[in-house]
Write a protein that binds this DNA or RNA. Structure first.
Lengths: 215, 215
DNA sequence: TTTTGGTTGACCAGAGTGGTCTATTGGTGG
DNA sequence: CCACCAATAGACCACTCTGGTCAACCAAAA
């Protein structure tokens, strides 16, 4: 990564404004159709500055990939308790972390998601391995050292993992759609988390061994 | 809807090529950023023809909305067996219908999905009501006359519906991603449907009353 | 031979593209 | 007070792409 010293010396707020604007633009339109004009307008800076901070569109894009991967690993993954052996409990906590992360970085997830769907052939080898490492890390953070014995004997645990994960994703998307346009910080999360718990408890009562079950 | 007689008299293949190209372009880029140039290239027709068939971009878009809603109601919803009282069984069948529908109309779902997320303020009142009716129909096709008594007493049936629906959506997305770029017709669906059944059977064993349960 | 419906792509004005550069600001050191 | 310099804005550049038009062409019918 080239220096971009000038950008790194900016006050944190401005940095974030620019990065969020750029992440949003790229994740919504893809590399080619992303517009630097829209980025500077959204970020509230002059056109010249973007190319003062980053030598061109491409370098900005690479910077964003590094940034997004860093944020994901340091501000999200690292906060999840991998000691928790109960899959559903671990998920409950990870979702709370995710909400806080999303409030600060509303576009990092979408950006990385779009990057995942993109043909990565054109990425530098270094970036690609970093990205793949991040994916592996995300995987193990969800599944490593999970206590399989909590699940009923008559259901396939790996498939159950998937079902639970997909359900959470679906619930998330529904929330994002429902609260579209509202500031995350302005939303009262308590009833949301409560409802979320109810959903997960259904999985607990139906996928887990119940007290009194013959082992 | 304006006549567009010239377009309706085209042979069915060409119509479909044009409609599919347009549906794809609009669903991937939204109305403003959709390009008529890309549509005609993808459809394999001259630029002039598009504006010979449709008077302008806007009319094409409205035609597509009508078309997509029609297809959805007549070629998809109408083929689903609403007599089946078992929620999961009904879903199993509806997914098979959906796969066949998707093979013929790979972009209708995405187009309507994008339309749903769009701010519908700008749509004509007529189109909007048609669209909403379609949504209501889709809802009742899934949920009407479902036998709730199949479910265990200790879980919230409506929430269970959601969990199952989200799981199916997640599985679908995974498939779409996995087979991205391949022609749907070239895919061997048997193992897919088998795996799909296994997932749904997990729900059956865990959400439904089991034989021997005290009622 | 003329007419007619279908078809193409060159072409248009205007908007948008990534990127450059000049002019200006405000602060700092001498 | 001057000289310097990093930071900043946005007018501007050549170029591409936009939705839409239109003259020319073609095959078949009359």
């Amino acid at each position: 990564m080239v220096i971009t010293k000038s950008f790194n010396n900016l006050d944190a707020d401005k940095q974030k404004r620019i990065l969020n604007a750029a992440l949003k633009e790229f994740s919504e339109n893809g590399y080619d159709k992303a517009s630097t004009n829209r980025i500077v307008k959204e970020a509230g800076i002059g056109k010249g500055m973007l190319f003062y901070y980053f030598k061109n569109k491409e370098e900005l894009y690479y910077y964003l990939i590094n940034y997004a991967v860093d944020m994901m690993t340091n501000e999200y993954f690292s906060l999840i308790d991998m000691k928790e052996p109960d899959f559903i409990e671990r998920l409950k906590k990870s979702v709370q972390v995710k909400i806080a992360f999303y409030a600060d970085n509303p576009h990092v997830n979408n950006f990385l998601g779009a990057l995942f769907l993109t043909d990565k052939l054109e990425l530098s080898a270094d970036l690609e391995t970093r990205f793949e490492e991040m994916q592996r890390l995300g995987f193990s953070i969800l599944y490593a050292d999970i206590d399989h014995s909590l699940f009923r004997e008559d259901i396939d645990v790996d498939k159950a993992f998937q079902l639970i994960r997909w359900s959470i994703e679906g619930y998330q998307n529904e929330l994002i759609n429902k609260f579209k346009g509202q500031k995350v910080t302005s939303i009262d999360m308590d009833p949301v988390l409560e409802e979320f718990d109810e959903y997960l408890n259904i999985f607990k009562t139906s996928f887990y061994k119940q007290e009194g079950d013959t082992q």
